[in-house]
Design a protein around this nucleic acid. Structure first.
Lengths: 359, 359
DNA sequence: GCGAAAATTTGAATCGATCCAAGAAAAATG
DNA sequence: CATTTTTCTTGGATCGATTCAAATTTTCGC
């Protein structure tokens, strides 16, 4: 009779403990999950056996299947994972999500992937009770993929036409207005807009028809807000250049290049993100243009970095942390309903905006 | 005969699909996980049925139990979850971890908890293949808890006497020396040390005996490095005040208060973290002391913020991102061995250190 | 010391998939 | 057309726990 193979050390299961301690599975299970209903003597015996055999405790993989709930929420994006730790907007949002998760003891699983195929797989196999989606560029694909899991999920940003999915975002029209009014009241009349993308995969100047057929309604609404207010001040919005760019340095700079190589230079820039606004400040400063003496800039988002840059950024602040908290709670307390929440925004005046230059 | 209860909508299982499509559950499973071995006609039929019934695809909970591997690594800390998104050191580390995870398509699960009890539960039930531990204060408890899971894990920082656990950290003695030599060469002879804690739950001035019996060897080694080098320059290290504090504002300020209320004020401060160093700069500046004209400061860590503060911080830079990458790879390519890696550090001279004031 | 009530323990059923040896069907060969 | 080969399909075993109704043991009151 061959001795049992040593080396391969199958991890010890609860059943092994039960057998060794001479009790049923049920009792062994109770020793760990509801120790108070097991007689003290038996409990100690089983624990001793477990200890002696080097049992690691009930494997969550097994428990999970039975219990159904993972107690973790997934946060998804199409950006690389490091986005969560590097992007200022994402970080503030994550802090809000963290807060809600900490309060209930839930975990956070970060889901992302380099390519589309892996993204699909990672979303399909994420062990979570629901998702919060950072819908940046390529967001609709992310939503489609997530929808297939048939788990609760919330999109951050209302920038989708689809009213059947839960989302939390801000009042983009109001935000656009606040920014435009602020600059107009400072006397500015020549504007340019650094816009986020209106649809997938395009950058460059934007025509009014393109605005009307925009896929991302968030972008469209901010534009609408800008223009509504500018019109009220008598600005001919048809002449305001709108440059659509990705939210990063290279294409934003290209946009600035394009805007400032035109004939009539703007005295005020409406930027749809703080990131863009800060890139603009840097670009202008490097070209000898003073902010806000020559050009005023108003951003959008209200990330903490905006207060630290030079000059500090005037911006439309979103309640980012609160959005994160609410998104997390939506998943944690999911009740089957589709919810769409619109949060207010606030104009934060700092030093990147000032009176329009004379003449 | 009562109709089946509608409302409660038990989610559809693979077995339901199999039955509805008239195939075995084995075949149904193959349709999703290895479609190429199923006859095209059958495959399409099953897929159609799945679609029609609103099947969400194979539930990862079920798959997991069979497969064994989660394909995610857990990152644990005793700090609240928001620590990962707010602390500069943690963020750079996480970026490194993210990079390694992105490369293999693994996910990241953040594990933390407000209180000890929940922490234990969260570690016990985290669905991960291994852990990376941020061992800040209270780290040994975290390690003990994690060890019980009997999964691979790595401690970030070698600050433990226990050689049986895998860890990655830096050469603290060398780092201490570099910092001390830099200041000594600038002519400084009156020093003070802002130290991280030597053991759990204590702050205040430290005696040489306490150093010898330090629990956290990382702290001890940095001190050793400082003193070795200072001795070489003829400084009487017995007279150098060492104030042990938490890595946060309140207790660090208390330390500064204590140090600067003493008789002979130091002209140079050796801080064991950039955080402390930056708090010190702020504190000194607020008191009208110029950095580095009156007091020079050298930090430790090399976080990006250090380059941005005013004046930019001279520091001992750790290869934080690389440590993160390696830690993640250790878990991802776990082979059962205990590994302890020591990384080099580098002196980064910026503007917070300068020649000792005359007299 | 007896029966009822309370406290424990048992063991089969279940959670939702994947795997694999064996059987069945289809295709290839002579 | 019979036989061999190849390709699919089947259904039981398994992953590691929890749950719950029923059986058993203890405890309690009198």
């Amino acid at each position: 009779m061959a001795p049992p193979v040593e080396g391969q050390a199958r991890p010890i299961r609860l059943a092994d403990i039960a057998k060794a301690a001479g009790v049923s599975h049920g009792t062994a299970s109770n020793v760990f999950s509801r120790p108070e209903i097991v007689r003290a003597e038996v409990r100690e015996r089983v624990k001793a056996v477990a200890e002696a055999m080097g049992y690691a405790g009930p494997d969550p993989k097994g428990r999970l299947l039975r219990a159904g709930k993972v107690n973790a929420i997934g946060v998804g994006t199409t950006e690389p994972l490091s986005y969560f730790f590097e992007d200022p907007f994402a970080r503030v949002m994550m802090a809000g999500i963290s807060e809600a998760c900490d309060a209930t003891g839930a975990g956070i699983a970060l889901v992302s992937a380099a390519n589309q195929e892996k993204l699909a797989w990672n979303i399909q196999s994420a062990l979570v009770d629901g998702f919060i989606l950072f819908c940046i560029e390529g967001g609709s694909r992310l939503v489609d993929l997530t929808r297939e899991r048939r788990l609760p999920f919330v999109a951050l940003e209302l920038g989708f036409h689809d009213e059947t999915i839960s989302a939390i975002g801000v009042d983009n029209v109001a935000g656009g207005r606040l920014a435009a009014r602020h600059l107009a009241e400072l006397g500015h009349r020549r504007f340019a807009v650094l816009s986020l993308t209106l649809g997938e995969d395009r950058t460059g100047f934007v025509t009014p028809e393109m605005v009307r057929s925009a896929v991302y309604t968030g972008t469209r609404d901010r534009l609408a807000g800008y223009f509504e207010e500018l019109s009220r001040f008598g600005v001919d919005t048809a002449k305001v250049p709108i440059f659509e760019t990705e939210n990063e340095q290279k294409s934003t700079r290209a946009g600035l290049e394009a805007i400032f190589s035109g004939g009539e230079r703007p005295t005020a820039i409406l930027a749809m993100s703080d990131r863009m606004a800060m890139i603009a400040i840097e670009w202008l400063t490097a070209r000898g243009l003073k902010v806000p003496k020559d050009v005023s800039i108003v951003g959008f988002d209200g990330v903490p970095d905006g207060a630290l840059c030079d000059p500090p950024l005037t911006t439309i602040a979103q309640p980012i942390t609160e959005i994160g908290r609410r998104a997390a709670r939506m998943i944690l307390d999911f009740d089957g309903a589709v919810r769409r929440e619109t949060m207010g925004v606030e104009l934060v005046v700092r030093a990147s905006s000032g009176p329009a230059p004379k003449g």
